[in-house]
Design a protein around this nucleic acid. Structure first.
Lengths: 204, 204
DNA sequence: CGATTCTTTGAAAACAGTCAATCTGTGTGG
DNA sequence: CCACACAGATTGACTGTTTTCAAAGAATCG
């Protein structure tokens, strides 16, 4: 790697961390020391569209913070059908908690829908930060709660709503994603066939 | 309240807390002081079948630990359809996290399917214990993770499986509940009509 | 441009929901 | 103890929604 490339890479990392700094200071204030500690335990990664961060059968090692771009968690069943469980865009988080916490092989894949830039938190690093930086711990706990509530609400919706209601809910909740994500992926996220979503949309 | 009744009530509480002590020592060891602290911040409640612990529109105040019996969280839509989001039996927990954490009115109801005995943790009490008793904090975090993973897996299942697969999965995962819970409530938990479940079961 | 992927459309089949009627078991009051 | 009421479960016929399969059209990318 040339000197120029190293400099460029550092520059990209600085920008990424700045995005992250911006994000977390929205939760609470962090001292320079705390920010330095956080910066010292994370890693940075650029992911091209279609590139994987995790594949089925692997054991998840990282929490990923999305500084730029768009990623997804999805599974593939025996018949080869993809189901998207989660999207993560700028200022979002993505990982497979089950695999990460239990140390079991993942049933899911994580890949980039767009060229993306992510910050990697090893689980041990996250635990360390949660201990050493109280505000960080609080933020993570808040995020976990939101995440659980979100899954609960989606489960509730998926048990009570039909395809049309789910789609309209999705558009209402994530208007930007509904335009940004290919239609067949929205269908996959909602658990319906692409043909069904197409027909729903064609109803005016 | 007569002296005899007071004694009987204390006795019931002692037995309930003993069940709880048994439960938490399965996670890790607790000192007598820690146990005393825990015992000092909880309350006890006996609930009859059909009695509610939480009703739609109220703000949830407690986490409930089920020492004995069986409870459920459910919602009711505009058409009056019940949907059961969760069962909690002996050694289970139940509450509405969204309402509890966000302080928003609950969309859910919690009631007893059988006569039950529960231990009440005010949210502030839970937070206090998480700070003062590290092993308690760890246990709660583990439970939260399991809870999230559980919701995620149920969401995944509900998006990928048909009624028959969901039912067989439920029976495989909770064989005891499948016998203990009235059939129409199993249907409600799975998000299918009672007639549909009946037909699935009649296929040998 | 050519190839591939994505979206749309049509027709048939599978699946689950709805409504109504009957059957079953349980518990209660007379 | 019986009769009755009631809630829950089952069954049948019908309806509606979603899937499946196939083919054609549109958009995207190298």
């Amino acid at each position: 790697m040339t000197i120029i490339n190293k400099l460029l890479t550092s520059f990209v990392h600085i920008i990424m961390f700045d995005i992250f700094r911006n994000y977390i200071t929205g939760y609470s204030a962090f001292t320079d020391n705390e920010l330095a500690l956080i910066a010292s335990v994370v890693r940075f990664k650029t992911v091209r569209k279609h590139q994987h961060l995790l594949q089925e059968g692997e054991i998840a090692r990282y929490h990923y913070f999305v500084a730029k771009g768009l990623l997804r968690t999805y599974s593939i069943d025996k018949k080869g059908n993809e189901l998207i469980l989660r999207f993560a865009r700028e200022n979002g988080w993505i990982s497979d908690c089950e695999s990460l916490y239990m140390g079991t092989p993942s049933q899911f894949n994580i890949d980039a829908i767009e060229n993306s830039e992510v910050i990697l938190f090893e689980n041990s690093a996250k635990e360390l930060l949660m201990e050493q930086v109280p505000a960080f711990g609080k933020m993570i706990n808040t995020l976990k709660n939101k995440n659980t509530v979100n899954f609960q609400n989606r489960l509730h919706e998926s048990l009570t709503s039909n395809a049309e209601q789910k789609y309209h809910n999705f558009v209402a909740g994530y208007p930007e994603l509904a335009l940004r994500v290919p239609q067949h992926m929205v269908a996959s996220y909602l658990g319906v066939q692409p043909e069904t979503l197409s027909r729903i949309r064609s109803k005016r």
